[in-house]
């Protein structure tokens, strides 16, 4: 269920030692560029560059990356089809009016719009995956603190982060035990079994959370977790790569302005 949790991958990737702010700037810059682009070409260009960086520089297994990409891509494809059907246009290829308030059509303009949105999702997903696969969450807490997020919010974020792993452990153990005892044999049974798993995992994780806080309090924890912060300076090469990426991305957005598929 959570095999695809990216955190484990991120802890061991090839760009692990690059300055966090630089990596975040690449990801966020790519997202902004994708949103500003008016043509399908620039998001595709950004996706290509970032995918190359993920596969070649961060050395992520291509199979893992493809699996991560294909599921959202399938969602994006289906959604783009809905948009193609409803957005309408002048050059009509096909149309159908099943109900008075609903008119479905495929037009040149709507295919262009749908394809553009599909490509923008591809670009955005690659940016998101770039951050997810190269930057472990623990590094982001340090960035959050630098960004002046209040301490107790970071405190809460860390507790939630820890609890996710506690909960997953509980869920995994309970689930296997339940499957062994044929807990999911019928649909009705599944609901009760699933609920009892949720309830038991909830209470057990709550207890573990209690213990965690108590243990931290005993070690003079006052709600502010001491973090090392960023210890890796942004090297010349990484900053140069960032600038090159943003510049070429902006150029792609500018040059491809208004280009359409059909």
């Amino acid at each position: 269920m959570f095999e695809e949790l990216l955190e484990d991958v991120a802890q061991n990737n090839g760009l692990r030692e690059v300055n966090t702010t630089v990596k975040l700037a690449v990801g966020l810059g790519a997202i902004v560029l994708c949103l500003l682009s008016t043509s399908y070409l620039s998001p595709l260009f950004i996706a290509l560059v970032l995918s190359a960086a993920i596969l070649l520089l961060a050395r992520i297994d291509i199979k893992t990356y493809a699996e991560l990409f294909l599921v959202p891509l399938w969602f994006a494809f289906l959604s783009a089809i809905v948009i193609v059907l409803i957005s309408g246009g002048e050059h009509i290829f096909w149309s159908w009016n099943p109900l008075s308030f609903l008119s479905l059509s495929i037009t040149r303009e709507s295919i262009n719009t749908g394809f553009f949105i599909f490509c923008r999702v591809i670009g955005g997903m690659s940016a998101l995956l770039f951050i997810a696969l190269t930057t472990p969450m623990t590094d982001l807490f340090a960035v959050m603190r630098k960004a002046c997020v209040p301490d107790f919010v970071i405190d809460l974020a860390m507790i939630i982060y820890r609890t996710i792993f506690i909960l997953m452990d509980q869920v995994r153990q309970i689930y296997h035990a339940q499957v062994m005892r044929l807990g999911y044999s019928t649909w009705r049974e599944s609901i009760t079994t699933f609920a009892s798993m949720c309830g038991a995992a909830f209470i057990a994780s709550w207890d573990e959370g209690d213990d965690l806080i108590r243990a931290m309090d005993a070690r003079c924890y006052d709600g502010k977790f001491a973090l090392m912060g960023e210890s890796r300076p942004a090297g010349f090469r990484s900053v140069a790569a960032l600038c090159l990426f943003i510049a070429s991305g902006s150029a792609a957005v500018y040059v491809s302005q208004g280009m359409t598929l059909l």
């Binding site: 959604s79 809905v82 609890t163 709550w206 959370g209 806080i213």
Partner: peptide, 23 residues
């Protein structure tokens, strides 16, 4: 705090169980 943490973790796990939808 632990209760807040566990409700957050719970939301994370439940809302990660995704089923495809067309929209």
């Amino acid at each position: 705090l632990p209760l807040l943490g566990v409700t957050g973790g719970f939301i994370f796990i439940l809302s990660s169980l995704k089923l495809p939808s067309v929209t």
